[in-house]
């Protein structure tokens, strides 16, 4: 089974040379730590920066340079700043190649819910609805089950949706799955996890074809 860093490490393998990538808050942010250093990738943050770098050294934090998680960051050579309308032009206009975000639920049809739990939590969608409505390539990074042990990979989402039929791939602590017209197609198992473990933790339709390899991390 993977921890959050393991999920990030596996997703980093999906990042290809020349990609502009938007990383959501939480596990997705960790992906930047594991991207191969022999490829050129630029990270976009929807509050208005392209070419994001690591956190600043202590004493060099700048309130005017933050990411979408409101964390202080730095920029790399070639970086740019822009306004919010321009930022979402990059997103809706499909100039960003890969979007990685977290979720509370994903359905076998590729629906995603990650912004609201009625009566309990209403933080808002931020840029998530724009991202999932437009991106061609969306990977969800999340734990396979919630804190109560219930599956987050469902036939239908029970929470208010963020987007419809948009998720392409899901990477969890247990497995890598692709969304297909027939359901979640199991592609890889996490180290030490069996196909049965994945099946037991998945409420939606899980398609198992042939031998399922263990992730190569």
């Amino acid at each position: 089974m993977l921890d959050k860093n393991g999920i990030a490490k596996r997703i980093a393998k999906e990042v290809q040379d020349g990609y502009y990538v938007n990383l959501g808050i939480g596990i997705p942010t960790l992906v930047a730590n594991y991207v191969r250093d022999d490829i050129e990738v630029e990270f976009q943050s929807e509050n208005g920066v392209l070419g994001m770098g690591p956190f600043p050294f202590e004493g060099e934090e700048d309130a005017d340079i933050i990411n979408a998680g409101k964390q202080t960051i730095t920029t790399l050579p070639g970086a740019s700043f822009f306004d919010s309308a321009t930022s979402f032009s990059m997103i809706r206009g499909q100039h960003v190649d890969l979007t990685i975000l977290g979720a509370m639920e994903v359905s076998e049809e590729g629906d995603i819910a990650n912004w609201k739990i009625p009566g309990k939590m209403v933080k808002g969608m931020g840029g998530a609805m724009d991202l999932v409505a437009s991106a061609e390539n969306i990977i969800v990074a999340m734990m396979h089950t919630n804190r109560a042990g219930a599956s987050k990979l469902l036939k239908h989402c029970s929470l208010p949706l963020t987007g419809v039929a948009c998720v392409k791939k899901v990477v969890t602590n247990l497995a890598v799955m692709e969304i297909t017209p027939k359901g979640f197609k199991l592609l890889e198992r996490a180290p030490g996890v069996t196909v049965e473990d994945v099946q037991n933790a998945t409420e939606g339709t899980l398609i198992i074809e042939g031998d399922i390899p263990e992730m190569d991390l």
């Binding site: 929807e46 919010s84 309308a85 930022s87 979402f88 931020g126 609805m129 409505a133």
Partner: peptide, 24 residues
Amino acid sequence: PQGTLAERCRAAQAGFPAIYTPAG
């Protein structure tokens, strides 16, 4: 949605009464 918020501002600035967005 955040992009919708930005674009509804920009539309007001630019003299567009409304915009179509896929978001939401």
